[in-house]
Design a protein around this nucleic acid. Structure first.
Ligand code: MN
Ligand code: MN
Ligand code: ZN
Ligand code: ZN
Lengths: 142, 142
DNA sequence: AGGTAATTTAGAATTATTCTAAATAAATTA
DNA sequence: TAATTTATTTAGAATAATTCTAAATTACCT
């Protein structure tokens, strides 16, 4: 039995992910990576991740939650999604996609790249190049 | 001579705008409205507006800057643009348009609706309706 | 195992924004 | 116009997400 309830296979997979990112495989990072990457894709805030970690019995500080999310983001393991003032969402879905955002529920829904077409892109201002295109369709209850 | 340096014509135009929004025409609102609406369109933060107001000799508190931006926004005189974590931009351009965002300069550039085409919009989730579509093209130095 | 550098952490600090409650100013009424 | 009512402004406190600091702990390498 482990300190955590991560399966042997998942554990070595997650370890590899951390190593590849140049990050040491600590108990905290493994457990957070498991929460983030072992299920389906997720859109998650620091607050939610912290709550989930604690609910799963992991003693982890707020600082580590933020450090880890930022390190994973810098390493390209997470994408940051900015849709509301004040707090950041982190997205485990690294594919080229866009979002619906339901403000009343603070919820993001993926829009596959194939399900949207942006054409006639305007000329990029001289000296700059596109670093990413974010499409956010804000939704309200009908 | 006025307490402010707003022209007679502009003044009555701005007063009308405030009245139409159900807001009293105060010295502060008139001066801020002049900064916001009397030149070309702008993308502005609370901090920048406050600095400009003070630079123009208007004694106005931080609270009033925030109150005014929020009231103008609620009244539909300003659009809010969220592109970075932490702070909001307010946009005087109410036409249907999108944005380039130069993160290194904290600068927004308008993309006219005619210069971009979003087609094949995905089906909106049941029970919801689109409240707005934001396209942000993030730029970095080449 | 021992040495070194990375990581974690509690708690303080920071930043943008909102709130509170008292003073002031605008609008309305008499 | 004076009195009254209601909205606005404001200083300063409060809040909320995030980052920083510096000390303790842990991972990794030899
Ligand atoms: Mn980040
Ligand atoms: Mn607002
Ligand atoms: Zn997503
Ligand atoms: Zn704009």
């Amino acid at each position: 039995m482990h300190e955590t309830n991560i399966s042997e296979a998942t554990l070595s997979e997650l370890s590899g992910k951390l190593r590849a990112a140049g990050l040491r495989t600590t108990k905290q990072r493994l457990a957070l990576a498991d929460l983030l990457f072992s299920g389906g894709n997720r859109h998650i805030t620091a607050e939610i991740l912290h709550a989930e970690a604690r609910a799963n019995g992991l003693a982890v500080s707020q600082a580590t939650i933020y450090n880890t999310l930022n390190q994973f983001h810098e390493a390209g393991l997470l994408r940051e999604v900015i849709v509301e003032q004040g707090r950041s969402y982190f997205d485990t879905n690294l594919s080229d996609h866009h979002h619906f955002y339901i403000e009343s529920e603070s919820r993001l829904i993926d829009i596959d790249n194939q399900d949207i077409a942006i054409s006639d892109l305007p000329q990029t201002p001289a000296g700059f190049e596109p670093a990413g295109v974010d499409v956010i369709i804000r939704l309200r209850h009908k």
